[in-house]
Every structure is written in structure tokens, then in C-alpha cells.
Amino acid sequence: MGGVFADRILTVPNVLSVVRLLGVPLLVWLLLVRHADGWAFTLLILSGVTDFLDGKLARLLDQSSRLGALLDPFVDRLYLVTTVAAFLIRGIIPWWVVAILLGRELVLTLTLVIYKRRDLPPPDVIYLGKAATFALMSALPWLLAGEMDWPLDGFGRAFGGALLVWGTTVYVWTGVLYTGKAIAIARTIPAVPHRSA
């Protein structure tokens, strides 16, 4: 049954990914316009839970799809980049962390050209990369919790900071691995000649 849903669009995991996508502008509004950190914290937690669920449900319900394979990592990256940018504006995280994370994304975006010129699909997601994204996405609500006036604000700052350092380190390492894969492809597989219309 593995390929039955390969081209389906309306699946439970894809619906969850779209719901998460719709949460991105709401998160920006909560963080930068309303400064409603409690609600933003809740939204970040819900995003993490639905991210975990869409992957599990895709396998459990046998609803993996090509759209899901593209949409899920896209929404992950969008959430990460948007939240990190909002945190930078709010002064919650330093600029150099943002530079590292965005630099990694820029490099990986450029490596996609190598695959495209060879008519190859993007590389499979490295499990360690998912773990790094999970650590970073877990760090963000805790860092936000450190900004709120409640008994666990000190713990939130410390725990969120530790997750941020670990997640950033692994995120950069997986970026090196993805880049290495792209370079190996470029060296071993010739580009497909450009076809004129």
C-alpha cells in the first residue's frame, strides 16, 4: 500500500502542515505587535506537537505524499526562520546565532541548484537534521518563557539557552553533511544539458 497515497493532497498530515503554516503570521503578530508572549509560547508548543504528529500519522495512516515530503520541511524552516527573526527583533537571541542559522539555510538553498541541474530530487532528510530542528524549535518556547514574569523564567532562559547551543551545533553539522552530499553529486553526476523549448 506504500504508493497508494503518493500523489494525494488532502491527507491528515498535509492538513496539519497547512494549519502550522497558517500559524506563522499569527505568531509574528503575537510576538511583535501584541507582545502576547503567553499565547506565542502556546502556539510554538502546538506547532511542535503538530510537527511531531504529522510525521507519525503519515506513517501510521500510510498517508505519505510527495506534497507532504516538501511541505513539512518547508514549514519547519519557515517557522524556525520567522521565529528566530522575531526573537532577534525582540532581543531574545543574539545576532550571531541568527547569522549562523540563516547562513546555513542560504548555503543549502544554493546546493539545490546542483540537484535541479541534474534532474534529481532534493536529498532525503537526514534524521540528525530533524533532531537539530526539534532541539531548536524546543529551545524557542523556553527562551520565550524566560522572558515572561513567572516562577520558571530563570529555568526557561537556562534550559532554552542550552537547547539553542546544542541545536545550533548539530544544525550546522548537518548543513556540512548536506553540502558534502551535494558536492559529491556535482563531482560524480554530470548536469543534464539544458533543453530549449
Rank of each mutant, 00 (worst) to 15 (best):
L143W: 14
L143C: 12
L143T: 10
L143F: 15
L143D: 09
L144Y: 14
L144G: 06
A145H: 01
A145C: 05
A145T: 00
G146K: 09
G146E: 08
E147H: 09
E147T: 08
M148D: 07
M148S: 07
M148A: 04
D149I: 15
D149P: 09
D149Y: 14
D149S: 02
W150F: 11
W150P: 02
P151H: 07
P151Y: 10
L152C: 01
D153Q: 13
D153R: 15
G154L: 13
F155Y: 11
G156V: 14
G156I: 14
G156E: 08
G156R: 10
R157Y: 13
R157Q: 12
A158D: 13
A158G: 07
A158K: 15
F159S: 05
F159R: 04
F159Q: 02
F159T: 04
G160W: 13
G160D: 03
G160A: 03
G160S: 06
G160N: 06
G161W: 13
G161S: 06
G161N: 08
A162S: 10
A162K: 08
A162Y: 14
A162V: 14
L163K: 02
L163P: 06
L163V: 05
L164T: 01
L164P: 03
L164K: 04
V165K: 11
V165L: 15
W166H: 00
G167Q: 05
G167D: 04
G167N: 05
T168W: 13
T168C: 05
T169P: 00
V170S: 03
Y171C: 05
Y171I: 04
V172Q: 07
T174D: 00
T174W: 10
T174F: 11
T174E: 00
G175S: 02
G175M: 13
G175R: 09
G175L: 11
G175Q: 06
V176P: 06
L177Y: 08
Y178R: 05
T179N: 00
T179D: 04
G180Y: 11
G180L: 12
K181N: 12
K181H: 10
K181P: 00
A182N: 04
A182I: 00
I183P: 02
I183T: 02
I183G: 00
I183A: 07
A184Q: 07
A184W: 12
I185S: 01
I185F: 07
I185P: 00
A186C: 05
A186G: 03
R187M: 11
T188I: 01
